[in-house]
Computed example of a mutant assay.
Amino acid sequence: MSIVQRFSKIFFYLALFPAVIVLCAWQGWAWWSWATAPPAPKSSTGETSDADKTVQIRIPPGSTSKQIGSYLESAGLIRSSNAWDLWVRWLNTQNKGVFKAGTYELSPTQSLKEIAEQISQGSVVQISFTIPEGRNLKQMAAYFESQGFFPAQDFLAATKQIPRDKFPWLPSGLPHLEGFLYPDTYQIASGGITPKAVIDIMLKRFEQVALPMYQKNPQQIKLNLLQWVTLASIVEKEAVIPAERPRIAGVFTQRLQKGMKLEADPTVEYGLNIQQTVDQPLTFKQVKTPSPYNTYLNRGLPPTPIASPGKASLQATLNPEKTDYLFFVARYDGTHVFSRTLAEHQAAVAAIRKQRVQQNQGAIPQPN
């Protein structure tokens, strides 16, 4: 081969090299564009299609970026975990991106970049939970465990840590937070569901809703914060019909002022960790069982609230009905019979028991 031919061949390859580079770059860019594009196109009809439906995916704490890529690819949210790895390396280099644990609502119509940004920003799903009025700590703990939030025992242990540094208005000497976790519906980030986080958000709601009521409203009977919440919790457990709350609060207020025992069944139930029913009321033995919470045996209020009172019961306790009633007994429809004297009360109890016996007898088939 002559020198001219050799140089011609060299020039040919040199001329071909840029074309090869361009071709490889084009192929690489084409693959990258495909790999980072949404796996499914958005519906062009305006109607929701399977492709438009979101997917909830949980990123466990401590997950590596490579594991996250595998989760996303397996869920059909990205086309390539390799492309995810490349993107993450660039993100870590350029933006120091950190992916946050939690539950995310993602769509296969999102690009890889959009998904990465959502997870790096911690835009997690908001979880809702509801604590009705009158629930105690053990009931809350069982609820949280049933929802898969955390073990019941973890929650109960956390309620014994009184955060007075953050909520200095909490009464001193509390053994637990019974009564101060405000009953309401809450939204919390899925990545932050811990006993402490739940407790903090509920105490904050008490601080926002209940505490101003106590600080601003005049009281017919002088109660400190702990006494107010404790009495309101008993009213909450006794009242079924909203209209009766102020009257029930009035009866308890009268008894306290006269130095009488409250004799409230819910305090006995709380102390013994039981719950009476229509068919299984408290027994004489249970009522006579000693407990700091037994208001049949002990005068005054129990040492702590027995549940979380709602706004209506808290307000009724601040402004109880002025009444000369000193007793009440529950009917079987949720209402109560109120009495001024012990004799009237005993007669009402006997009448209600007789009615119950007649109802039970009427429910038993009679022989032919």
Rank of each mutant, 00 (worst) to 15 (best):
E236R: 05
V22K: 04
L106M: 03
L231C: 03
Y143G: 03
K285H: 09
L14H: 11
Q358G: 00
D324M: 06
Q359G: 00
V349K: 12
T230D: 01
V278G: 05
A350T: 14
P108G: 09
S33L: 04
E145F: 04
K138E: 14
P41F: 00
L170W: 14
F11S: 12
V20G: 07
Q187H: 13
P367R: 02
S107R: 13
N95R: 14
P151Q: 05
V88F: 05
F99C: 03
L181K: 12
P303M: 05
D52P: 06
R205T: 09
G28S: 12
V88S: 03
T159Q: 09
C24Q: 10
L262G: 10
I306M: 06
L23I: 07
V240A: 08
V55F: 12
E244W: 11
F144T: 04
N319W: 03
V337D: 06
V235H: 03
T230P: 04
Q139T: 01
Y214M: 05
T109E: 15
S313K: 08
W169E: 04
G271R: 13
Q147N: 11
F180Q: 05
Q126C: 00
P302F: 05
M213F: 13
D184F: 08
L14D: 10
V278T: 15
G173R: 08
P365M: 03
Y296M: 11
T109Y: 14
L137Y: 11
H345T: 08
L231I: 07
S70W: 08
R6V: 03
A37Y: 10
Q208V: 11
Q121N: 10
S80C: 10
Y13R: 13
Q126R: 05
T36H: 05
A363W: 01
S128G: 00
L203K: 12
A30G: 11
L231N: 01
